[in-house]
Design a protein around this nucleic acid. Structure first.
Length: 451
DNA sequence: GAGTTTGAAACT
DNA sequence: CAGTTTCAAACTC
């Protein structure tokens, strides 16, 4: 498509009046979906710069991030979406995923920007990039006049990119989904928007909005297509509810604050078509359980102060020894705590996944060979010299490994010498570690580069 | 794939 | 609040 890139303007969900411009479809945000969660913000220079280091690490766990996005306070402005009539929205392809490597991130226009509280508008734009691959860019609208904007820190990039799958904005009935679903960006629940049709042309059911934002594709990008390389825990499991209409917490989709998509459920009301009913159910559920839709298990280990990321409840297992996925603690890969009422528990700090061992270690190093990390005191809240014990969870470990793999692959592609490759990987490791620690300390990572 | 087991959520 | 029922997922065969 030629002309201006399509843009989506997020406006408060309350201002759902039809646009005065008849050529514009009005779309309001999903009532419970908040703006993209910003784990850390970084002010960077103009998005036109191709040297922006977009690749970063989100320390927050996937689930927690989503839930925080869904339940976070409303003090950030949310604006409805405005689609230009000329915009084309691609039909929804639920399992479509996109993964990008660091080159793509560094060379593309892909950024996810924070909406500073002072900002009133945020624009979601799709900008054709110089290499003919389009990415979604979400920038404060004022950025056109401003030399800087805030950037959402992205989870580390995954390995491959399939140019055929670079369609960043999709619809599912009344939903627009931004689906960069590598293990780098968890945007779907964060930028799930509900379409509200122009009243003049509204039909009772919004079925198959088949337009799509055009996606320029590069045939020169010969990377491997693979939609299923994501770790299982990053992939959304379709629910199979038959009786709950997917409006009870039994339904994982509902419990995670997501609409059902590509699920095998029967009589599903957990979708945009039943928004009213769904909202009612959410209200009811929250009345009954104010902690619903929040992460139950995630916690900062070894901290005594109450904080939002501590587990909100414990499990109640009797027969599984807390070693089956029935156990929510086990499934969340956290050891059972004093909050649990389980019997015969074997899900202790000593028995968690090896990759999480460092995570729940209670100050006793496993070996006598201490690393500098081992010497970091592990009690109390994070300070200048300490970090929370749960920094190196599975997600972060995998993200770190992926970063290093990507770096290695790039060296291979560039036919870098072994020595230089080693150097590059070490530098990447250093950079990741720095970011992880910075994130753990609750600071925006420094923008200075290591190289 | 069907049936059973399990534990969370819902209900009383 | 405690006991029971319902539910969907995990598990077993």
């Amino acid at each position: 498509m030629s002309g201006n890139p399509p843009s989506i303007v997020l406006l408060p969900s309350s201002s759902s009046a039809a646009s005065p411009n008849p050529s514009i479809q009005n779309i309001t945000t999903h009532p419970i979906v908040r703006p993209p969660i910003i784990v850390h913000q970084q002010t960077i220079q103009s998005p036109s710069s191709s040297s922006i280091p977009f690749k970063s690490v989100i320390v927050k766990p996937y689930r927690d991030s989503i839930q925080q996005a869904l339940t976070t306070s409303t003090n950030v402005d949310v604006k409805p979406v405005i689609l230009h009539s000329s915009d084309i929205i691609e039909s929804h392809q639920p399992n479509k995923r996109i993964a990008l490597d660091s080159t793509d991130l560094n060379n593309s226009n892909l950024t996810f920007s924070a909406i500073p509280k002072s900002e009133t508008l945020t624009t979601l734009q799709q900008i054709p990039s110089s290499n003919t691959v389009s990415f979604a860019t979400m920038v404060p609208q004022s950025s056109s006049n401003s030399p800087s904007y805030s950037t959402l820190r992205l989870v580390t990039p995954s390995t491959f990119i399939n140019p055929n799958e670079i369609s960043t904005i999709q619809t599912s009935g009344q939903q627009i989904l931004l689906q960069q679903r590598g293990n780098l960006v968890i945007t779907q629940p964060l930028v799930t928007l509900q379409v509200q049709q122009d009243p003049n042309s509204a039909q009772k059911e919004n079925n198959s909005n088949s337009a799509h934002f055009p996606t320029e594709q590069s045939n020169t990008n010969a990377r491997i297509s693979n939609t299923d390389y994501l770790p299982v825990q990053y992939q959304r499991k379709p629910c199979n509810c038959t009786k709950s209409m997917c409006l009870k917490l039994y339904c994982d989709c509902f419990a995670n604050g997501l609409n059902c998509q590509n699920c095998a459920c029967l009589n599903c009301h957990n979708d945009a078509r039943h928004e009213e009913e769904r909202n009612k159910a959410i209200t009811t559920t929250l009345e009954r359980n104010p902690n619903a839709f929040k992460s139950k298990m995630y916690k900062f280990a070894n901290t005594t102060v109450s904080q939002p990321d501590r587990p909100l409840k414990g499990c109640n297992c009797k027969k599984s020894s807390c070693h089956k996925r029935y156990c929510e603690c086990y499934e969340s890969r956290v050891p059972c705590t004093s909050l649990c009422k389980c019997i015969g528990c074997k899900n202790t700090e000593q028995s968690v996944h090896p990759l999480n061992v460092g995570f729940y270690r209670s100050g006793q190093p496993k070996t006598t060979t201490q690393t500098p990390l081992d010497q970091i005191p592990r009690t109390g809240p994070p300070t200048e010299t300490t970090i929370p014990n749960n920094v190196f969870n599975m997600e972060v470990s995998e993200a770190l490994a992926t970063c290093l793999l990507v770096t290695g692959q790039q060296c291979e592609i560039n036919q870098t010498s072994d020595l230089d490759s080693q150097h590059a990987i070490l530098k990447e490791f250093q950079r990741c570690m720095h970011q992880i620690v910075q994130s753990a300390l609750g600071r925006p990572p420094s923008s200075s580069s290591f190289g």
